[in-house]
Design a protein around this nucleic acid. Structure first.
Lengths: 147, 147
DNA sequence: ATAATTCATATCTGCTTGCTATGAATTAAA
DNA sequence: TTTAATTCATAGCAAGCAGATATGAATTAT
């Protein structure tokens, strides 16, 4: 039941772009320096965000990435889904407990409830909320998790 | 954000004992047969449940395991915690976002909210609920997840 | 004694995580 | 037109985890 670095760094990348990308685009090099993360690793993660259409890339010198939508229209759910994959605790939980085998096991309601509770949380938080917190605390580069 | 076989099998083991362990104890061999799971693998999992005091073992022939409390006093939370470890999506989420480094990062409130929502679900469901469902549907051996 | 059980360790295969490495393609600026 | 800065693409790699399997010792009812 853990969120990996992909999801956590994904949120930091997006927050960084939201805070620092006024009108122009932000390079991965800058993000990596500000967030103290490996640029090469971030390339892989931002690729996931790009595939989901959350950021757009600009190639070449002075290139970088920018958001495709206003920060208030980008949910934490969409960022975590792009980077982590499904947030369901088991595969079938997204289908109200009916998996492709159409079984309805004793525990399926547990997974569905956990999934729905989780989605309820992350779909109500937007990138704008994170950006505002980041600006307010000036702590965007910090993260509780070691490593 | 996935629940592993340890957690899932753990719930099945406990449900099986709750349903089939009237007064006496239930052997792992019987559980493994009914649930179509490897007896040897279940040994490892029930050991986790035993360490947490959710089941008590009886050694020797005609031995097995029995619950240490009535099923309605055993929550899904306690079973998953014993088998999966912490249900927090990141390590610091259990401490209201204050990790041992005492940092308060931009995303900590997300993890805390997910954690609390999850705990709210699993702490409200008891083994008795699962046992009743199992008896009602006669499907205790089924599980949505393949493998 | 014997068979059935739990308990204790050790091992193993495949997959995932969290990177690092190399280099090609693209483009702004000198 | 060269150069430097960037994204894009692919590959590799060490460590750990998942999901078991294997072997055998200790315990106990029959």
């Amino acid at each position: 039941m853990k969120i990996s670095t992909k999801g956590r760094y994904g949120l930091r990348i997006m927050t960084d772009i939201a805070v620092n990308g006024e009108g122009c685009c932000v390079s991965l090099k800058d993000i990596a320096e500000r967030e103290h993360l490996s640029e090469k690793y971030l390339e892989q993660i931002i690729n996931l965000l790009s595939k989901e259409g959350l950021v757009k890339s600009v190639r070449g010198a002075k290139g970088g990435y920018h958001l495709t939508k206003p920060a208030e229209e980008i949910t934490v759910e969409s960022i975590l889904k792009a980077t982590e994959g499904s947030l369901a605790p088991v595969a079938c939980a997204e289908d109200n407990g009916k998996c492709e085998n159409y079984c309805d096991c004793v525990t399926s309601f547990i997974w569905t409830q956990i999934y729905e509770a989780t989605i309820s949380v992350v779909s109500s938080i937007t990138l704008r909320d994170l950006a505002e917190r980041s600006i307010a605390t000036e702590k965007s580069g910090l993260e509780c998790i070691k490593k």
